[in-house]
């Protein structure tokens, strides 16, 4: 009668997390996004056809990244802390649920929310592009959208990691820093190479390898010019995200498994 499969637990928790996000009106940001895209499609009519479509891609995908990052950071840091603060976690951990299953379930639930968010936004941008006559771009942007989603999955894992040992406000701040620095991590490597002191070089090298390399997922400008990310690049970025997220979730679980819920 009873089936305690790990997959089933994770799936159940993920589904409930998605339901929580929907009922807490997280997806309401889509309304704002649709308004932004519609307004830009109408008011950019003054520009030439090519520029108009490029601007919509730039604006739409940048907004998609910013809105998504906002959800990853603020919902991500509250995913676990809210459960502890409201003591809903008591009823969960008295059931046959491992702490790792809980963390992975919560993480995947938020990733599902982000996937739905990104998907709907992507459809919105594509429709706006079709409206302004940028039919080709309407299809070629989906590679860049996938990269944005991968970036958000990394950011969510960072947010959950920080929230496993620090306050939500500090976690949000730290995750935001990682989001900003992550986009410049290639510069960190170059910077390290130009340093004289071997200690500082080592320090910046370590920083480069420890921090997520989010520049791998920046393809918005290229997408605006009609380029699609090569399959090799997308595959590499996906593999990097998978490994990075995997390590972060393992570390989060190690910290979370030792935590007392007073």
């Amino acid at each position: 009668m009873l089936n305690f499969s790990v997959i089933s637990h994770i799936f159940t928790i993920a589904r409930n997390t998605f339901r929580e996000a929907v009922r807490d009106r997280v997806l309401y940001n889509l309304v704002l996004f649709v308004l932004l895209i519609t307004a830009s499609a109408i008011f950019l009519g003054e520009l030439t056809a090519g520029q108009e479509a490029r601007t919509i891609v730039n604006l739409g995908l940048s907004a998609m990244l910013i809105f998504g990052a906002f959800i990853s950071i603020f919902v991500g840091v509250s995913l676990v802390s809210k459960e502890i603060e409201r003591r809903t976690i008591y009823a969960i951990f008295s059931k046959p649920i491992g702490r790792g299953e809980f963390i992975v379930g919560k993480y995947l639930g938020l990733c599902l929310t982000l996937a739905v968010n990104v998907l709907i936004m992507g459809v919105g941008v594509s429709l706006a592009l079709l409206y302004v006559g940028g039919g080709r771009l309407a299809f070629s942007i989906w590679g860049a959208i996938f990269l944005i989603f991968l970036e958000l999955t990394i950011l969510t894992a960072v947010a959950i990691l920080f929230s496993s040992f620090s306050s939500p406000a500090l976690s949000a701040l730290l995750t935001f820093f990682i989001f900003v620095i992550g986009h410049f991590s290639a510069s960190l490597k170059e910077f390290a190479a130009n340093l004289g002191s071997s200690f500082t070089r080592l320090f910046f090298d370590v920083l480069y390898y420890v921090l997520p390399n989010l520049s791998l997922y920046s393809f918005i400008t290229n997408a605006a010019h009609g380029d699609a990310p090569p399959v090799k690049m997308t595959g590499g970025a996906a593999l990097y995200a998978l490994c990075y997220v995997g390590v972060l979730l393992v570390v989060t679980n190690l910290i979370f498994s030792r935590r007392n819920f007073k």
Binding site: L2, I13, T88, A91, K95
Partner: peptide, 27 residues
């Protein structure tokens, strides 16, 4: 286990909460 002053997911309905916990038990 019923904790002291229990608090559950307030976005769920009573029936949904029971269903959710039942699912975690594999029912």
């Amino acid at each position: 286990y019923c904790p002291e002053n229990p608090y559950f997911y307030d976005y769920l309905k009573a029936r949904e909460l029971m269903n959710y916990f039942g699912e975690l038990f594999g029912l």
